[in-house]
Design a protein around this nucleic acid. Structure first.
Lengths: 216, 216
DNA sequence: TAATCGCTGGGGTGATCCACCCAATCGGGT
DNA sequence: ACCCGATTGGGTGGATCACCCCAGCGATTA
């Protein structure tokens, strides 16, 4: 009883890599690949896979929207998100769309396989650092109130540092601009990345652009 | 005979830093500050400065558009662009808008002062690495033909690497994806940054988003 | 008063980045 | 036959990153 999988990612090299990785597993079979959201929807209808490995950044419709539509028309198909995004926004949206798993691309291959097997059995797999976000969100109550933005958790000083970081400034120049020690800037940066669950400056830049903190 | 200057930048700390820097100079006087493009236009009319130090990334209208309007209504006012952007696109647009100088924020303070004094005398100051772009552009002929995009100068392989870089991938994972040595990826990265005149991954990310290579 | 939080800054460590340098191979065009 | 550009890969050195540790100070809150 193999798990029939449709790979969705706009990068051909990523699809190839995943195919090589997954085809070594006896219980997994790749039945198709799609490079765009619409292509994915069409292939789900045609190929009837058990599962879709879904990227979020696609050229036409987003992986989130594609997931929503798949869940509407073919709720029996499991969807595992495999993406570079680790911040709250995409994570929660993907969950709301009905994803059965969420694995960042930086995760170890074994974790993707774990997610695939759990999702195939009807479970939901969440990458540890993201599960933490979920727990934190539930503990901090007021689910009825206005949806919280991760940005709200940042302090004033952190927001100030974030603006510079997103601009592309390095630690040294931020320290000079704010008249504080580079070590303190690094400390703020660490706190920001922890709160937003980001792990590099490039992720910070993309986050800041999405949030409108800076323009590209 | 002092040069009366209006500072335009959306970051208060940047304005403060510039003010401190410039007020030490005997021949320079800061007559005002603006945080937005529209505010800048209003203050140019009201304060009649000799010169505007103009950031590009502003919350309302861009520094490029603001420069165009200033040059239309008050052509006697010199405009020096002071920005984090060093790629061709903004540089040429700012020149077309009529800027009298273009200095990246990473430049040494002395270079900004040089630009200010040259612009005040009616000259045009260009930061060396950008002047190089201008020269290259003129040497490579066909000025009447379709405007060249710096992206066109990239080779296929470089474009491939760029897509991964912009995605936030590190050298190691790109090397694995493309099945080449990390050193080769680094080599391509060096070439890309040279051709596009960018100097860090974060700048690359912003460039890629502007160009539509990736979405935020 | 005690506790918490924000901000400040110090130390360290391993990995990575980035700007330089170098060369070999291969294919296409003058 | 020759050069040139694209691609490949190696090395080096200084800076930075991402992630740990630690602490003091002041203001707010419990």
């Amino acid at each position: 009883m193999t798990i029939k999988i449709l790979l969705v990612d706009d990068h051909a090299v990523v699809r190839s890599g995943l195919r090589m990785l997954l085809e070594n597993e006896a219980d997994v079979e790749i039945v198709g690949e799609a490079a765009t959201g619409r292509e994915a929807l069409a292939l789900v209808d045609r190929l009837k896979p058990d599962m879709v490995i879904m990227d979020i950044g696609l050229p036409d419709i987003t992986g989130i929207e594609a997931t929503q539509r798949i869940k509407q028309t073919s709720p029996e198909v499991a969807v595992v998100a495999l993406t570079i995004h680790e911040d709250e926004e995409y994570f929660f949206k993907m969950l709301q769309a009905g994803a059965n798993g969420y694995v960042p691309k930086r995760a170890a291959p074994e974790e993707l396989l774990t997610a695939i097997r759990i999702a195939a059995e009807g479970g939901v797999y969440l990458y540890p650092s993201l599960a933490k976000l979920l727990v934190r969100d539930y503990l901090s109550s007021d689910h009825d109130a206005a949806k919280k933005d991760a940005l709200d958790e940042l302090t004033d000083r952190e927001r100030e540092v974030l603006a510079h970081l997103a601009d592309g400034a390095d630690t040294q120049s931020i320290a000079e601009a704010l008249n504080i020690s580079p070590k303190t800037v690094a400390r703020h940066r660490d706190n920001i990345m922890n709160k937003l669950n980001l792990h590099s400056r490039t992720e910070l830049v993309k986050y800041a652009i999405r949030k409108g903190i800076i323009q590209a």
